[in-house]
Protein backbone atom coordinates (compact mmCIF):
# COMPACT_ATOMS: atom_id res chain seq x y z
CA UNK A 1 0.00 0.00 0.00
CA UNK A 2 2.81 2.39 0.85
CA UNK A 3 4.44 1.92 -2.56
CA UNK A 4 1.28 2.94 -4.40
CA UNK A 5 0.79 5.91 -2.09
CA UNK A 6 4.36 7.07 -2.65
CA UNK A 7 3.89 6.81 -6.41
CA UNK A 8 0.59 8.73 -6.27
CA UNK A 9 2.01 11.50 -4.10
CA UNK A 10 5.07 11.73 -6.38
CA UNK A 11 2.74 12.24 -9.35
CA UNK A 12 0.88 14.95 -7.39
CA UNK A 13 4.12 16.72 -6.52
CA UNK A 14 5.33 16.60 -10.13
CA UNK A 15 2.02 18.08 -11.34
CA UNK A 16 2.31 20.87 -8.80
CA UNK A 17 5.92 21.52 -9.88
CA UNK A 18 4.72 21.86 -13.48
CA UNK A 19 1.99 24.29 -12.35
CA UNK A 20 4.59 26.35 -10.47
CA UNK A 21 6.81 26.37 -13.56
CA UNK A 22 3.85 27.64 -15.59
CA UNK A 23 3.36 30.51 -13.12
CA UNK A 24 7.12 31.15 -13.25
CA UNK A 25 6.93 31.52 -17.02
CA UNK A 26 3.75 33.59 -17.36
CA UNK A 27 4.04 35.61 -14.15
CA UNK A 28 2.96 39.17 -14.96
CA UNK A 29 5.21 40.79 -12.37
CA UNK A 30 8.64 39.74 -11.17
CA UNK A 31 7.30 39.17 -7.63
CA UNK A 32 5.08 36.43 -9.04
CA UNK A 33 8.15 34.74 -10.45
CA UNK A 34 9.98 34.94 -7.11
CA UNK A 35 6.96 33.45 -5.34
CA UNK A 36 6.76 30.65 -7.90
CA UNK A 37 10.47 29.93 -7.44
CA UNK A 38 10.08 29.79 -3.66
CA UNK A 39 7.13 27.41 -3.99
CA UNK A 40 9.20 25.26 -6.34
CA UNK A 41 11.92 25.05 -3.70
CA UNK A 42 9.42 23.84 -1.10
CA UNK A 43 7.85 21.32 -3.48
CA UNK A 44 11.25 19.92 -4.43
CA UNK A 45 12.04 19.46 -0.73
CA UNK A 46 8.87 17.39 -0.45
CA UNK A 47 9.87 15.38 -3.54
CA UNK A 48 13.34 14.66 -2.08
CA UNK A 49 11.81 13.51 1.21
CA UNK A 50 9.49 11.26 -0.76
CA UNK A 51 12.45 9.80 -2.61
CA UNK A 52 14.06 9.09 0.76
CA UNK A 53 10.95 7.19 1.85
CA UNK A 54 10.91 5.31 -1.45
CA UNK A 55 14.55 4.22 -1.10
CA UNK A 56 14.24 3.56 2.65
CA UNK A 57 17.26 5.63 3.47
CA UNK A 58 17.71 8.73 5.66
CA UNK A 59 20.56 10.00 3.48
CA UNK A 60 18.55 12.61 1.64
CA UNK A 61 17.55 14.70 4.64
CA UNK A 62 20.78 16.67 4.54
CA UNK A 63 20.06 17.56 0.91
CA UNK A 64 16.55 18.65 1.86
CA UNK A 65 17.86 20.81 4.70
CA UNK A 66 20.42 22.39 2.36
CA UNK A 67 17.76 23.16 -0.24
CA UNK A 68 15.49 24.66 2.42
CA UNK A 69 18.23 27.01 3.62
CA UNK A 70 19.32 28.01 0.11
CA UNK A 71 15.74 28.62 -0.95
CA UNK A 72 15.02 30.89 1.99
CA UNK A 73 18.26 32.85 1.59
CA UNK A 74 17.81 33.30 -2.15
CA UNK A 75 14.17 34.40 -1.83
CA UNK A 76 15.07 36.95 0.84
CA UNK A 77 18.01 38.16 -1.26
CA UNK A 78 15.74 38.65 -4.30
CA UNK A 79 13.25 40.50 -2.14
CA UNK A 80 15.87 42.74 -0.57
CA UNK A 81 17.34 43.52 -3.98
CA UNK A 82 13.96 44.54 -5.37
CA UNK A 83 13.13 46.50 -2.24
CA UNK A 84 16.33 48.43 -1.65
CA UNK A 85 18.38 48.07 -4.84
CA UNK A 86 21.07 46.36 -2.84
CA UNK A 87 21.31 43.14 -0.84
CA UNK A 88 23.69 44.00 1.98
CA UNK A 89 23.83 47.68 2.77
Amino acid sequence: MLDYTVMLVAVMLCISLVLNLWRLIIGPHIVDRILALDTMYINSIALILLYGIFNQTPLYFEAALLIAMLGFVSSVAFGKYLLRGDIIE
Binding site: L8, V9, M12, L13, I15, S16, L17, L19, N20, R23, L35, A36, T39, N43, A46
Partner: peptide
Protein backbone atom coordinates in the same frame (compact mmCIF):
# COMPACT_ATOMS: atom_id res chain seq x y z
CA UNK B 1 0.34 15.70 -1.45
CA UNK B 2 -3.22 17.03 -1.70
CA UNK B 3 -2.28 20.20 0.20
CA UNK B 4 0.76 20.82 -2.01
CA UNK B 5 -1.36 20.30 -5.13
CA UNK B 6 -4.06 22.68 -3.88
CA UNK B 7 -1.46 25.30 -3.05
CA UNK B 8 0.07 25.10 -6.51
CA UNK B 9 -3.31 25.24 -8.22
CA UNK B 10 -4.08 28.31 -6.13
CA UNK B 11 -0.79 29.85 -7.17
Amino acid sequence: GIFVLVGSIGL
